[in-house]
């Protein structure tokens, strides 16, 4: 049994993002491998948070594997998700995108 429960998991030492290991609340201070962040947003379990600055166009890595490219500059403490990260392979479908698709009549 491991007794140590981390709030954020940095899956590889070279990753600029970490993954919330539980629901985190705005205002919480978290420390990940020496990087201290005061959370500006609620971060649900499993969501990604930037630990280091990421430039628009830069590939974002999780577990050392690229998971897409940043579509905007990302600051430490920002949530990294569909609003600032896109696939290098195939577009991501969300219900919101699906509704917009329906409105155009396409």
């Amino acid at each position: 049994m491991t007794a140590r429960v981390l709030p954020l998991l940095r899956l590889a030492a070279s990753d600029k993002i970490a993954v919330a290991a539980r629901d985190l609340l705005a205002g919480e201070t978290v420390v990940v491998e020496g990087i201290e962040l005061v959370l500006r947003h609620n971060v649900p379990l499993g969501y990604k948070l930037a630990l280091l600055p990421i430039a628009a166009g830069e590939k974002v890595e999780k577990y050392r594997v690229p998971i897409g490219s940043a579509t905007a500059d990302i600051a430490p403490g920002d949530i990294v998700h569909t609003h600032n990260l896109q696939s290098d392979y195939l577009p991501t479908y969300t219900l919101e995108a699906g509704r917009k698709f329906g409105e155009t009549g396409a």
């Binding site: 999780k62 594997v65 569909t82 896109q86 392979y89």
Partner: peptide, 29 residues
Amino acid sequence: EAYYRTLGHGSFAAGNADGGLTTIEEKSL
């Protein structure tokens, strides 16, 4: 990849994004 590109989107459901996954390659990982 060519097959899904023709179809318009990958094997990615709306709930995957609600659960914190952003891209198909992240889901793949």
